[in-house]
């Protein structure tokens, strides 16, 4: 089974870059893969990069919220990076503002946020 979403490690941070739209099954697999990664030692943060994603559905959104909750239980901060305006508008129109999830404009800023968590409000 080919992995839909590559999950890479830079320093102590995991970076998952979502490529194209995901089917429900892919999303579930993606969640499992992520969880097995961040339970490894030396996992100090997780960035989910959505730069190339242009369509989201409610299931993907729910999964994002799930991942955030699970990661929090394990003490790993999560940042969502590079969301496109179209996706943001869709989410807001659906009434899902992803309260409590950290966001960043791009991967670089996401990494900065994880490295200096105190700087943010």
């Amino acid at each position: 089974m080919q992995q839909q979403v590559p999950i890479l490690k830079i320093d102590d941070f995991w970076i998952a870059s979502v490529q194209g739209s995901l089917h429900d099954q892919d999303v579930i697999e993606f969640k499992q893969a992520l969880l097995s990664k961040i339970t490894q030692p030396k996992s100090n943060g997780l960035i989910i990069d959505l730069t190339v994603l242009d369509v989201v559905d409610s299931f993907v959104t729910k999964t994002l919220i799930d991942i955030r909750g699970l990661a929090k239980l394990m003490g790993v901060p999560v940042v969502i990076a590079g969301m496109s305006p179209a996706v943001a508008i869709t989410l807001v129109e659906m009434g899902l503002s992803l309260e409590g999830i950290d966001t960043a404009l791009n991967l670089q800023k996401g990494l900065d946020k994880l490295r200096n968590p105190g700087k943010e409000r």
Binding site: I80, V92, E93, S97, L98, N106, K109
Partner: peptide
């Protein structure tokens, strides 16, 4: 509020 929320989702 919607505009602010959408901007936040982008990371601003």
């Amino acid at each position: 509020m919607k505009t602010v929320q959408a901007a936040r989702l982008l990371g601003a």
